[in-house]
Simulated assay, not measured.
Amino acid sequence: MSYVIRAARPDDLQHLYEMAKLTGGGFTNLPPERRALKAKLDRSADAFARADDTLVDELFVLMLEDTATGEVRGTCQLFTQVGQRHPFYSYRLGTLTQHSRELDRTFRAEMLALTTDLEGSAEVGGLFLHPGERAGGLGLLLARSRYLFIAAHRPRFADRILAELRGIIDEAGGSPFWDGLAGRFFGMNFQDADQFNGVHGHQFIADLMPKHPIYTAMLTETARAVIGLPHPSGRAAMRMLENEGFAFENYVDIFDGGPTMTARTDRVRTIAEAREARIVAIDSDGGEEALVATGHLTKFRCAFGQVRSVGDGIVLSTACAAALGVAEDDVVRHVARVL
């Protein structure tokens, strides 16, 4: 089978909706609500239609398609600059150190402070791969295609980039972090808040949450235990982010306490190591396993392929060339599959 990453289209709404129903909750960027998903596709269409290479608040949605059957099996999203329409809130986990002479003791208190430090960053998110396709590296293709898209449209993305990982959700679909902190202020369980959040965003949380720092010692033990931890299904994604150069710098999601990973955009490994080259030949005689991308905006496509360097150009594998719709003398961007 051959798979390709392509720009989302309006007729992908049903595909997105079917995938959204499989996420299991807490997946903010892919809510199982048609109106919210259509709004995402409309916003993405506007971004793809804008030809001006300037930095504004935009959303691009990409889809993973089986070229043999036309079935859509995954999706991912890119935000060019968050926090421009509404404040982008996070909790920053910090420590307050105090010393008592009388007791001759030093006390260190861990605190959560509401912050907009990450406002203005680009964001990669909304990655979902159909459960039946979680083999063969397709998750890697989805994740890293986003960086090749950024490389191809670099002026349209901020200089810092973040990725929010879903936090811990229990077997009943609840969030220990929500129950121990935010839920106390809203009279709303996590499932209801999750649904509202997916449609309307989490501005309502920021509006009603206390703005002063919160001592983690005042939270329940179950809430404290999950701060900064990814959902088990997100551990592999966290490792991929770390391989790309992202780091956890004590920022957590105000909704479920999941970790926020950050990096400098130009230092993301796939972006830094990607190279442009002209195709001098197409054959199936082998080469280095690579991710290969071509095209601008709606014509963007990305797939796995084999690449051999020949002088200043490359020889590209036949199947990859067919998936991308490229021929000799076309220019592609490629990066090694193994980091």
Rank of each mutant, 00 (worst) to 15 (best):
R269P: 00
F27M: 06
R184H: 15
G187A: 14
F149V: 06
H15Y: 13
D12E: 06
R35D: 01
A68F: 04
G136R: 13
P210R: 15
V338L: 07
E119D: 09
D12C: 05
A163M: 02
A143K: 04
D159T: 03
Y91G: 00
L16Y: 00
D104R: 15
M63Q: 05
F255W: 03
R85F: 07
V332E: 02
E119I: 03
A47Q: 02
D207R: 14
P32N: 15
D192F: 01
Q306H: 13
F107E: 04
S90N: 15
T262K: 12
A8H: 09
D57Q: 15
R267T: 12
S309W: 13
M63C: 00
E273N: 07
N189Q: 10
Q195H: 12
S90Q: 14
H212F: 13
T265S: 07
T260E: 05
A152E: 09
E249K: 15
R108T: 15
A47V: 03
F196L: 14
R275V: 00
N29F: 10
L138R: 15
G26S: 05
A122G: 03
R43A: 11
M63V: 01
A68G: 04
T69A: 02
P31Q: 11
L142A: 01
R108C: 08
L62T: 02
Q195F: 03
M63Y: 08
G187P: 05
L339D: 10
P155T: 14
Y17W: 07
T54M: 06
L118S: 02
T260W: 02
L112P: 01
G136L: 08
A39M: 14
A122C: 03
W178K: 11
A263C: 05
G173T: 11
C76Q: 14
P31S: 08
L62M: 10
L297E: 10
R101N: 08
T115L: 02
R154V: 01
H153Y: 05
S2K: 06
A143V: 00
G257I: 06
H86V: 11
L316W: 06
T220F: 05
A225N: 10
C320A: 15
F79E: 11
R101H: 12
A293Q: 03
G26K: 12
G201W: 04
D253Q: 00
T270K: 04
Y215M: 13
Y215D: 10
F27D: 02
A321C: 02
E119L: 01
R239C: 05
T67K: 13
L16K: 09
F107V: 12
A182H: 13
G234A: 11
D66G: 10
L241T: 09
A319L: 04
A158F: 04
S44M: 02
D179Y: 03
S317N: 06
H15N: 05
T222P: 00
P230I: 12
Q306I: 07
T23H: 05
E171F: 09
A290S: 13
L241R: 08
T28P: 03
A109Y: 11
T80W: 03
M218I: 12
A109R: 13
I214H: 09
E58P: 04
V4F: 00
E242S: 05
D330C: 06
A172E: 10
V56H: 14
